[in-house]
Structure formats: structure tokens, C-alpha cells
Amino acid sequence: MLTSELYGLTLAATGLLSILFILLFYLLVRKAFSIRERNQIEIEKKQYEEPIFTFLVDGQLKRGVTPSTFTQKKAVEELLAKFAGLLEGEQEKKRIFELAQIHLSDFYRIRLKSRKWSDRMNALFHIEDFKIRSLEGNIISLFEKKKITRDEAIHVLRILAAFQSKEIYSLLLDRFNSLSTYEYRNILTRLDENHFDQFVLGFNKCGIPMQSAILDVMGTERKLKYVSFIESVFRAYSGEIKIRALKTLGEIGYVKDIDLYLPLCKSAKWEERMMAAKLIGVLRERKGIPDLKALLHDSNWWVRSQAGQSIKSFSDGEKVLQSILETSSDTFARDMAWEWLHKGD
């Protein structure tokens, strides 16, 4: 009664089993090959290591470094990547990029067109590391493909930023206007001052994530020339951007007039109270000490913690903390005072 079902199932099972065995065979052969390939690369790395190192250090190009096969190119790539991490000197770096330009740019040009996503991604990583500017056009043409993955697009933008490409401004503002703050930040930090200032000028046209990223980058760069711009952003905007601007001011550690910011200690938003505490601390503004004492009794942990840190940054800060520890009736305030008294000494 079940013969047809059984027949079908047995057929399916044997069929699948044989497919699995064929796949296994394929994968094993592939693995064996890749192990052999790896060994070959290791051998070639040993051969190239000495001449490449000599070139990087003395600039004397010996014969013998003419990679033509896949494994040879891989060996050169891995050695250069290794030396790029080890050698710090400007001259050495330049020579690394020079070698990469000579021996690897064609290799990457082909790999950028590979159908495998991981091939293209790895090529992008190395192009960025070795600063192969001659491939800028090839990278931009990746955007012409119908299906470019998000990871690739972000990476291309990063490289273009690092190369200070002219395209980057319009690309970010028009085509890629919905990235995350983190992604924008990652791209914008690679720009030099001139290119970055273009984005500052276009601040109003950007979306919130990019505005946040611009402010964050200013915070890490700590350039005083942006202070008046950030202060104007702080006054003109509300919500998240306002808080970000405040945070950036705290990181730069300078404002023209602290009195404008002291009222924030009583803001309804804890982020603003925290940032106000931070500003008082980095500016060592003595008239803010009473505010800091009050903020050490705040209901929010982050605000208390920041207040504690800011108090500690004053020369007599430890005395202030000690008196709170002894006199306050608020256990959380005492706890925070204790924590900062015992931190990092």
C-alpha cells in the first residue's frame, strides 16, 4: 500500500545522500587545495620577506620581488600588511604604499569586479590600508552596479573620504543621506580640515544622524575654531542635537560665557544636567561648585557620577567630596562621593 511513497522516499534519501557525499567530496578537495595554497603562500612569504624588508628600510629595490601568481601576490599582500602594522616611519610607509601600487593594484582592480562579496570587501580593506589612489575611479564605479551591499557602500565612502575625493560631499548629502551616526562618523573622521569644513557649512542641510556625527568629530578633534559654531548650534537647535552640541563643548572644554550654561543644571533633561556638570568640571569654573554639589544629589546615576568627577577635578575637590561624604544625609550622594575619592589613586 505504501510502495509508491516508499519508493519516492528511498529515491529522495539516496539522491540527497549522494548529493551530500558529492558536496563533501568537493569541500574536502577544496580544503586540501586551500591548505596547500596556504603552505605555498607561507613559503613565498619566507622568500620575499628579506628583500621587501630591505627595500622598506633602505629604499634599495632588489631583484626577486616580481609576484605574478596568485599565491605570490597574496604573499606580498600579507607581508606588506604586516609591515604596515609594524613600521611607523613616514618613509617606510611611503615605500609600502609604493610597492602595493606597483605589485597589487591590478590584482585589486580585478578583485573589485569579483562576483564574491568577500573578495570585493577584502580588496576594499587593502586598498584603504595601502592607500592605492590610482583605484579611486574603480571604486567609484562600484556605485554604478545595481546591487551594492550596504557594507560595501560604507566602505567605499570611507575610502573616498580618506582619499579626500571631491565626490564625497554630494554622495553623502544626496545619495547616502540615511546612514547611522556611527557610519557617518567613521567616514567624516577621515576627511582633512578643508573637506570637513564643507560639511560644517552644509550643517543645516544634513539629517540628524549626520549632524550628530559632525558634532562628534569636532569633539574628538578638539579644535577651538569650531566653538562659536557649536555654541550657535546649541542655541538654535533643540532635542538631541542640542544635547550633542553641549557634549561636544564639554569635550573641547571651552565656552565663551559659562553663565549661559549654568541654568542647565536645573534642566528637566538629565542629559543636559550631566553635560552642564561636565562643562563646569572641564572649565574648572569655581562659581559652579554649589551647582555641582546639588547635582551630586541628583536622582540620575550618570548626573551624580559626572558631578563627582567634575568636583574631583578642582584642586580642592577632594575636600568638597570628603565633606559631602561626612555630612550629607543622601546615601547615594555619599556613595558617589566615596567612589570618586577612591578612584584612580
Binding site: K116, S118, D119, M121, N122, F125, N186
Partner: peptide, 20 residues
């Protein structure tokens, strides 16, 4: 499949320096 042979350590390297 997409990530076969992707140099993974590189993908995460950027994040180490990310102060945020």
C-alpha cells in the same frame, strides 16, 4: 555564504578605536 573567506579581524578592527 556571503562571508566566506572574509578577513574577519579586519571587519572589527575599526571598532577598537571607536571611542564611542
Amino acid at each position: 555564504r556571503r562571508e566566506y573567506q572574509l578577513d574577519r579581524t579586519r571587519t572589527y578592527e575599526d571598532y577598537t578605536n571607536e571611542i564611542y
